[in-house]
Design a protein around this nucleic acid. Structure first.
Lengths: 335, 335
DNA sequence: CTGAAAGCGCTAACAA
DNA sequence: TTGTTAGCGCTTTCAG
């Protein structure tokens, strides 16, 4: 049982394979009559071109590679699925295939299998990046700024977002603000901490070392961090967690110890994971346009693959503080 | 800038392209000396074979297509990411590429682009299935039993799982048990309801129509369902929600109305989403081996692609009731 | 154990 | 507007 090929279509349509190829690829120089006959033949034979042959002959893959670091923290997250979703639906629209490549930091799809690459973060893939850059393959990185490198990226201003969180909390009267960080090996984790620190310094808030609890985006680490914070003699009145998951876990930990949120402790998260907006305490958090990041990443990549852009596009998408009910004023305001 | 090709490798190794091809493909009939020289040349030239050419020449793609229905309920879920993860990590191990294809129910990857297909559920893709079956392309469906069709699947016994939930609840003394269903257009949703109904009947429990609240896996639908249940004059003492997300939302809804969980209302979920085990009320739920499903699906597919198996493999993986703290006895047991 | 040569199915000059 | 003719880069008989 052999699949029908282009020559068979050509034969039954009474034209050359070239003509068939032309109508398949939307080349306009085909007479309406011939086009019609080809179309009929294709339908009748249920012909579908062999993509491998197309790619080989045309020298382009019509595929973009989605490289995902095999790292729990990112792979496992709400973040990943949302971005994939954004990329996936866009890819479907422009009829381009998506090659999912989960990597241990050592491998990427073969050059000729893809026209371009999207990295979903580059945690653990730093060395790969050099390879890629040397291979002249179009690439865009999601969720990691690479300002000194000529690489396109689509990310979010985590520093600014964290600063805003602190500003918001200060506006509510908090001065003793702690943070539960993400994995500091990721840029997002690091930036969220940097922004926090920057704002704390700028506003000359109380800054104890213990107010920075290093965690790793994991639930257990968040719980541990929160337990430490709660035991502090000068317990913070507000906590900024670097992810919604961790924020939820932190709230849970506090509630377990009989500390009410937000009455006795304000908590802010990061992500705007829907599950967090519906919990016991609807979470005040930072919304990132995750699907949008995916969509834009693909768009930038496509432009680059089209050879339009020579210099990298570096995009910082806006975040938004979503106020819900996990924060509260610490004093009665003067009227 | 042209990529190095096999003939270049052959030249620098002083052998024919055939020999190079042999060492690449692990054919054993190559002298150790030649093998060494080829390997050296490959490394030196940083040669990587062109997959498209390989696929075309060899007639196999070394790629499996992962078809995901473009449907919020499945695409968006914890379920999807976990299964993808299972498939992805397995695929990485057996060095097979993964083509992610998000579909509206009308398209699948071209036959020659993949050696086989994994459907992540088939919601909205029922017609596609016929196409696939007519195309003699190896396929396995995840999360949907197709007992009357000669199609491999890897799923979970949702009916049995739901029955067990009811059994568990009855064991705690509940007789007024309601359910918040998933989307009944999905088999998983339907089965969970069927199992529930079956068990309720078998145990001759109270069964009011209002005890079956049809929802769709979405949070808003779950909330609405719960609100209806709570207003009932004969309010149920226990609720089985068809997903953890919905269960959480249900608990939240109850708490909002001042109804304590589990003291006044027991709730059971489905999935064992980690976020549910850490909430205000650690959720008693049904664990499904999601990653395992992905892994097994790929394994079954690979066997099928190898031509080993002619008849379909139909797997029902075990679930497990994870008891946490969202359920409670309704009466003081006699001693 | 090795290599020559014939494709795999399609695209793209180039000529007509 | 059309068809002829080379390839694209690799695998695979088949003969040696």
């Amino acid at each position: 049982m052999k699949a029908t090929d282009i020559s068979e279509v050509a034969r039954t349509a009474g034209v050359s394979t070239t003509t068939v190829s032309r109508v398949i690829n939307g080349v306009t120089t085909v007479s309406p009559e011939n086009r019609r006959r080809v179309l009929v033949a294709i339908k009748q034979l249920k012909y579908r071109p062999n993509p491998n042959a197309q790619r080989l002959a045309a020298g382009k893959a019509n595929t973009v590679g989605l490289v995902i670091p095999r790292y729990e923290g990112i792979f496992n997250s709400y973040f990943a699925l949302e971005v994939i979703k954004g990329i996936g639906t866009s890819a479907e629209r422009i009829r381009c295939d998506l090659l999912l490549h989960i990597t241990n930091g050592k491998t990427i799809p073969a050059r000729s299998a893809v026209d371009g690459l999207i990295f979903l973060d580059i945690y653990g893939c730093e060395e790969l990046l050099d390879d890629v850059l040397n291979q002249d393959i179009p690439i865009v990185v999601v969720n990691h700024r690479l300002e000194d490198l000529p690489v396109s990226y689509v990310a979010v201003d985590n520093i600014l977002a964290a600063e805003r969180v602190v500003g918001y909390l200060v506006g509510l009267g908090h001065r003793d603000i702690a943070t539960i960080t993400g994995d500091l090996k990721t840029q997002a984790g690091l930036d969220r901490l940097d922004g926090f620190l920057k704002a704390v310094k700028a506003r000359q808030l109380v800054m104890r070392d213990a107010y920075v609890q290093v965690a790793d985006f994991g639930l257990p680490s968040a719980r541990k961090a929160m337990e430490v914070l709660l035991k502090l003699s000068d317990r913070p009145t507000a906590v900024f967690a670097a992810s919604d998951d961790m924020a939820l876990e932190a709230i849970q930990t506090a509630l377990d110890k009989g500390i009410r949120v937000p009455e006795e402790l304000s908590v802010v998260g990061f992500d705007d994971n829907p599950i967090a907006s519906h919990g016991r305490v609807p979470l005040t958090t930072v919304r990132q346009p995750l699907q949008e990041m995916g969509r834009q990443a693909l768009e930038v990549l496509v432009q680059q693959m089209g050879g339009k852009k020579r210099n990298p596009t570096q995009l910082l998408l806006p975040t938004e503080l979503v106020e819900r009910q996990s924060c509260r004023q610490t004093w009665i305001e003067a009227r």
